[in-house]
Simulated scan of single mutants.
Amino acid sequence: MARDIDGSYQPTAKSRKQQEKDHRRMEFRRAIETYSDQRQLLREIADYPDLQELTVWQASAAVSPRNAQQAH
């Protein structure tokens, strides 16, 4: 780890690139998980014709943890 005189951490170019790579990988993983969750939800509601008018975005908004926290 590279530290300045004041003790703050200054990542090297190599570690900065690795952090960016990890960040992109996590964003991609979250997108895959979201997509998978949406598809699973749509499969679950397929047996209910009155719910088939829902779009993927409406369905995902209904079960999103962020939306559940905002409702409090």
Rank of each mutant, 00 (worst) to 15 (best):
Q69G: 09
E27F: 09
Y9Q: 10
I32K: 06
D4I: 09
A46R: 10
I32L: 10
P49S: 13
Y35R: 14
G7Y: 13
Q18P: 01
R24Q: 03
Y48Q: 11
A46K: 09
S15A: 05
E27D: 08
Q70S: 09
L51A: 12
E27Y: 09
H23C: 07
W57V: 03
P49D: 09
S64F: 03
D4T: 15
M1P: 15
L51N: 08
Q18I: 12
R39T: 04
Q58F: 06
P11V: 10
Y48V: 13
Q38A: 12
Q52Y: 04
E44V: 14
A61R: 11
I32S: 01
R30T: 04
M26W: 01
P65F: 00
I32C: 06
S60P: 01
T12F: 02
R29F: 12
R43N: 11
R25L: 05
H23Q: 08
T34S: 07
A2E: 13
S8T: 15
A61F: 12
M1R: 14
Q58L: 05
W57F: 05
Q10F: 11
A31V: 03
E27V: 13
K14A: 04
P11F: 04
Q70C: 08
K21A: 04
A61V: 04
E53G: 12
Q69N: 11
M26S: 02
T12M: 01
A59D: 01
R39M: 08
Q52I: 00
A68M: 10
E20F: 04
R29C: 08
K17N: 02
K17Y: 01
W57N: 06
S64W: 03
A59Y: 02
H23V: 07
R66L: 05
A68C: 09
D47V: 13
D37S: 09
I45D: 04
I5V: 15
S60F: 13
I32M: 08
P65A: 02
R24M: 00
D6L: 15
Q70W: 11
I5Y: 13
D4Q: 15
L51S: 07
S15P: 02
Q18M: 08
P65Y: 05
A71E: 06
D37G: 07
S60C: 05
R29Q: 09
R43I: 06
R39E: 07
K14L: 04
T34A: 11
L51G: 07
Q40W: 13
Q40T: 12
K17T: 05
K14G: 03
G7S: 12
E20L: 01
A71D: 02
F28L: 05
V63P: 02
M26G: 01
Q10V: 15
P11H: 06
S8L: 14
A13M: 04
